[in-house]
Lab assay of single mutants.
Amino acid sequence: EDDHHMEFCRVCKDGGELLCCDTCPSSYHIHCLNPPLPEIPNGEWLCPRCTCP
């Protein structure tokens, strides 16, 4: 699979289990988001950068 997502968290710059945005290459740990997510959501997810007006 050709995955163009970042291999590190945009916030802390560390790797591991990352949540990938469905519209851009950004990846995040769920605990690095503000507010943090309790678990990885099902379905499409947009990062804070893509949901800002």
Rank of each mutant, 00 (worst) to 15 (best):
residue 48 P to I: 00
residue 38 P to V: 09
residue 31 H to F: 13
residue 34 N to F: 08
residue 45 W to D: 04
residue 43 G to S: 10
residue 32 C to V: 00
residue 48 P to N: 03
residue 24 C to I: 02
residue 18 L to A: 02
residue 27 S to R: 13
residue 14 D to N: 07
residue 8 F to R: 11
residue 12 C to H: 01
residue 26 S to M: 15
residue 45 W to I: 03
residue 1 E to Q: 04
residue 31 H to S: 07
residue 33 L to A: 04
residue 9 C to N: 02
residue 6 M to L: 02
residue 1 E to W: 00
residue 11 V to R: 12
residue 47 C to H: 05
residue 17 E to T: 13
residue 31 H to G: 12
residue 9 C to K: 03
residue 24 C to P: 01
residue 32 C to M: 00
residue 29 H to F: 00
residue 14 D to Y: 04
residue 43 G to K: 13
residue 39 E to L: 07
residue 52 C to K: 15
residue 23 T to Q: 10
residue 5 H to C: 14
residue 20 C to D: 12
residue 15 G to H: 04
residue 21 C to P: 01
residue 28 Y to K: 01
residue 19 L to K: 11
residue 45 W to F: 10
residue 36 P to R: 09
residue 51 T to F: 13
residue 20 C to A: 14
residue 52 C to S: 12
residue 15 G to Y: 06
residue 19 L to V: 11
residue 51 T to D: 15
residue 28 Y to P: 02
residue 32 C to G: 01
residue 19 L to H: 07
residue 22 D to T: 14
residue 43 G to I: 08
residue 38 P to A: 12
residue 22 D to C: 08
residue 18 L to G: 02
residue 51 T to H: 07
residue 30 I to Y: 09
residue 45 W to C: 02
residue 18 L to N: 04
residue 21 C to A: 02
residue 51 T to P: 13
residue 32 C to P: 00
residue 28 Y to W: 06
residue 46 L to D: 06
residue 41 P to C: 08
residue 28 Y to H: 03
residue 45 W to R: 04
residue 34 N to Y: 06
residue 38 P to N: 14
residue 3 D to K: 15
residue 47 C to L: 02
residue 8 F to D: 07
residue 17 E to A: 05
residue 6 M to I: 12
residue 17 E to F: 04
residue 41 P to E: 07
residue 42 N to P: 10
residue 1 E to T: 06
residue 18 L to E: 01
residue 39 E to I: 12
residue 41 P to T: 09
residue 11 V to S: 08
residue 26 S to A: 14
residue 35 P to T: 07
residue 40 I to C: 13
residue 52 C to F: 05
residue 48 P to A: 08
residue 18 L to Y: 01
residue 33 L to S: 03
residue 46 L to T: 12
residue 19 L to C: 10
residue 50 C to H: 05
residue 3 D to Y: 15
residue 31 H to M: 10
residue 50 C to M: 00
residue 9 C to D: 03
residue 42 N to A: 13
residue 23 T to K: 11
residue 18 L to T: 05
residue 37 L to T: 06
residue 29 H to K: 00
residue 21 C to M: 00
residue 15 G to T: 12
residue 50 C to T: 01
residue 15 G to D: 06
residue 24 C to M: 00
residue 40 I to L: 12
residue 49 R to V: 12
